[in-house]
Simulated scan of single mutants.
Amino acid sequence: MNGAVAQDYVIAVALVLVTVSATAAALTRDPMRQAVVLAMLGLCLAVLFTLLQAPDVALSQVAVGTVVTPLLILLTVRKVRGTSSGGDDGRRR
């Protein structure tokens, strides 16, 4: 098997992984689980960008798509669920 053909197969597998993880992220209803699936999508995209010889884009994807965005989603969901579940607006009687 030629090296270029093997590389094409690896890229095709990475594309399938990106497609599956993107579909899973879109179909997941719970925001906490969706953040985790979104992190997996970011990691799959970073691998794909590395295989396509774009290491700078892959590093940006790891930083933003795999770490920062899911972390912000998790913190936001935690804050929203924390303030809406208590029913108390913080005022004393």
Rank of each mutant, 00 (worst) to 15 (best):
T50H: 10
T23C: 06
R33Q: 08
I73R: 03
R29K: 14
L75P: 07
V10S: 01
G90I: 04
L75T: 05
S84M: 15
I73G: 02
A12W: 07
R92T: 08
F49A: 02
A63S: 02
S85R: 07
L15F: 12
P70C: 07
V20E: 11
V10Q: 01
P55L: 05
I11P: 08
P31I: 01
L71I: 06
V47R: 07
G90A: 09
V37G: 09
V20Y: 03
A26H: 04
T28H: 05
V57Q: 12
A25C: 06
T66I: 08
D8I: 00
Q34G: 14
L45I: 10
S60N: 08
M1P: 10
A22K: 08
V57K: 06
A12L: 12
R91P: 03
L17G: 01
K79A: 11
F49I: 07
V10A: 06
R78P: 09
A6I: 06
V64W: 08
L48P: 13
I73W: 06
L51P: 13
V5K: 14
T83Y: 10
G86S: 14
A22R: 06
R29D: 13
M40K: 05
S21G: 03
L27M: 09
C44Y: 02
R92F: 11
G87R: 05
R78T: 00
S85L: 14
T19W: 02
A12R: 04
V16P: 03
S85Q: 08
V37K: 11
L51R: 09
V62E: 03
V77Y: 09
L52K: 12
L74P: 07
V36P: 05
T76G: 13
Q34N: 15
A25M: 10
V20K: 07
V13A: 09
D56T: 14
P55H: 10
R91C: 01
V16Q: 04
R92P: 01
D8K: 12
A54L: 15
V80Q: 05
M32R: 02
M1N: 10
L59M: 14
C44M: 00
R81S: 12
V67P: 11
L71C: 07
M1I: 04
T76A: 09
A58Q: 13
L15P: 02
A63E: 05
D88H: 14
L71M: 06
V77E: 05
T66S: 13
G3N: 15
T28M: 15
M32N: 04
A54E: 15
T76D: 06
L75H: 05
L74H: 02
Q53T: 08
M32V: 14
V36T: 11
V16G: 02
T76Y: 01
T69L: 14
D89N: 00
T83D: 11
G87L: 13
D30Y: 07
L45Y: 07
R78Q: 05
R81L: 04
L43M: 14
Y9Q: 12
V67H: 04
G3V: 15
Q53I: 15
G65C: 11
L48K: 02
L48V: 07
D30F: 07
G42V: 06
T69M: 00
